[in-house]
């Protein structure tokens, strides 16, 4: 079945106001992201009320720019796709209500997209997906291993039991007095150090689940113990030790799952997949395994609407439609849409 459609996609689940036009599920015609990072850095994290206020200020401008950059009119579109969840509910509601109003104004169908399905489908924008696919989704809110046997089929085979990987990065960054968001700073520091502090790895037996809260506590205890002895920590060594632990667990479990399910492709998705340490480790491991491994380019790893458009395009093709009573769902499950 040939996927022929043009989708307007909108994403506002956290602190990026984003809109994009996607042709046939794989071609980015336009991709606009308005970031609030400058505003949110003041608070050391994303404040939901502030995020919602920014979204309502920017939403119509961002959608207009996506259409202008694409040189398209509303009547050229086939559907509007929008992130339905998970995410910050107040933030989701801005994108959803803008999407519904736009769809209503032009008589277009509306499609609600799961944010994580979006992250995974970011790969469809750069690479043909060959099933079965194993996706490692790592972001500020997620750490999941997802097995896909075909388009629209998701099976979560492992997930974090406590903190998300990105969350652990942010918390450890705070311990090291690094600015928000902490991920890139820890990654950079870790690369500057030749030796890391030895921190534990949470293997959780044979499960594909993850746990990062113990590691986070180990970092805090380490700093505390040194301070008690009147010694200073070497931030680079702590960053490297922490990152090595996270990366080793993520890589080892992903490799094991790829073998067990005999996948044809492994993809990394989500903001933390931009992390150099993690990228290198996964690349090397899968080169050895002889399994193709892909990470989308940086601007498609972090939150964006192009990925929502890619997933939305496949949903459109599968006949999935939402309606005007669509609500924001902060705890939306990753449901399969294929039959």
């Amino acid at each position: 079945m040939e996927n022929q459609n043009i989708i307007l996609a909108i994403e506002t689940s956290c602190d990026e106001t984003a809109a994009s036009i996607i042709r046939n599920g794989s071609e980015i015609v336009s991709n606009v992201v308005s970031s609030q990072i400058e505003s949110q850095t003041r608070f050391g994290g994303v404040v939901p009320e502030v995020a919602s206020r920014h979204h309502v200020e920017k939403i119509s401008l961002v959608i207009e720019k996506a259409l202008k950059d694409a040189n398209l009119e509303p009547q050229d579109l086939d559907a509007v796709a929008v992130t339905e969840g998970p995410g910050l509910v107040g933030a989701l509601l801005i994108g959803i209500n803008a999407a519904k109003a736009f769809a209503f104004a032009h008589g277009l169908p509306i499609i609600g997209v799961h944010h994580i399905a979006g992250h995974i489908y970011a790969n469809a924008l750069v690479q043909n997906m060959e099933f079965p696919v194993l996706a490692l989704v790592v972001s500020g809110g997620h750490t999941e291993l997802v097995l896909m046997k075909e388009h629209g089929h998701f099976e979560v085979i492992g997930e974090t039991r406590d903190d998300a990987a990105g969350e652990a990065y942010d918390k450890v960054a705070r311990v090291l007095n690094l600015p928000y968001p902490g991920g890139p700073h820890i990654d950079r520091l870790a690369h500057s150090a030749s030796e890391g502090v030895e921190f534990p790895r949470a293997w959780l037996d044979n499960s594909y689940d993850f746990s990062f809260s113990g590691l986070k506590s180990a970092v805090i205890n380490y700093k505390h113990n040194l301070e008690q002895r009147g010694e200073d920590i070497v931030p680079g060594m702590v960053a490297k030790g922490f990152q090595d632990s996270v990366v080793e667990v993520l890589t080892t479990k992903t490799v094991r799952a790829a073998r067990e399910f005999q996948v044809k492709q492994v993809i990394a998705a989500g903001g933390v997949s931009a992390n150099k340490g993690l990228r290198n480790s996964l690349e090397q491991a899968f080169q050895k395994e002889g399994i193709p491994f892909y990470v989308p380019p940086l601007n498609l790893c972090t939150d964006n609407a192009a990925m929502i458009g890619a997933a939305g395009s496949y949903m459109y093709q599968a006949g999935i439609r939402g309606n005007m009573s669509m609500n924001g769902n902060p705890g939306l499950d990753l449901k399969s849409w294929s039959i």
Partner: peptide
């Protein structure tokens, strides 16, 4: 209500802009 106002304004703003 912050959320209430934003829903009305988002809908009104989107309709006004696109129409």
């Amino acid at each position: 209500s912050y959320t209430g106002i934003r829903i009305g304004v988002t809908i009104a703003k989107t309709l006004a802009w696109t129409l």
